[in-house]
Amino acid sequence: MPLAISAEGVTKVHGAARALDGFDLEVPAGTVHGLLGPNGAGKTTAVRILTTLLGPDGGRAEVAGFDVVRDAARVRTRIGLLGQYAALDEVLGGRQNLEMFGRLYHLGARAARARAGELLERFALTDVGERAVTTYSGGMRRRLDLAASLIQAPEVLFLDEPTTGLDPRGRTEVWDAVRELVAGGTTVLLTTQYLEEADRLADTISVVDHGRTIARGTPTELKSRLGGDRIDVVVREPLDLAAAGAILARVGNGDPRVHADERRVGIAITDRVSALTATVRALHDAGIEAEDIALRRPTLDEVFLTITGVRRDDEPVDGAGGSRRTGRLGTGDATEVAA
């Protein structure tokens, strides 16, 4: 499959900070790729370089087959960008916005008008098309923003944290719109801090931290290979939590994670069936009453924690973030999960 986006060893220095530090990316045409990482990981810098807004300091990148530096003008005729903030003229109406952007894409007056009408219809904005954008809700604004980035039917669409600041309904609206696009064959690069979002929309995910890709694969691969399976026990008596944790520590790998407020304790395991059997037997022998026992795949939150060694609120685990940070992956190089 041809690559819609490729980046090799891209670096970008902002002052003293390395925003990108040997960033690699490969996205096959027609797929959705999620760039997942915490604030300041370099996701937005990567998108700005790939959309020709920023020049890289080193490395090379191609979008739709064209170099983002040498062929920037050609790249611009093939991409759509949805930035972190709705990039709209707030004073103008929705229709006026789309017509203006259409003219600036050189569709011609009549085609720009027709395209604006089409897109308003498609994103259910026809009724509010004449109203000033200032009066729009967050979800409506985002939909109009998305419509504006689709005016020239882009080969590659960049979505930089498309649902940040939206309420759950607005989020679902944007997700539905993205799914529809992908069904039409558009390649999508999506950056997000929401693991759920990457899980729901992306075919493949790159986990980005400190300006480089530290893991990549499908959501399922990342979960099973990096996080491993887990077993969770919910006890009836909060007092039994410590004893249950001790039992799990013998069954599983590493330290059990306790969620006291849910009376739940969990641990990573290697063999699902034998771990389950051993846990049930040991709990029974110790006379601990369990409300629930479950085998499950880890959430992407846990995957991220495992890879980076840093909690999402950026607190080092056990106060030893430095050593744990790359501990699991050794050198911090990308772990190739895909087969």
Partner: peptide
């Protein structure tokens, strides 16, 4: 500030304009 300038710059339009 609103990112409109970025949108213009990512488009195949005349940047002088």
């Amino acid at each position: 500030a609103r990112g409109v300038t970025d949108r213009f710059r990512s488009m195949p339009m005349s940047h002088f304009a």
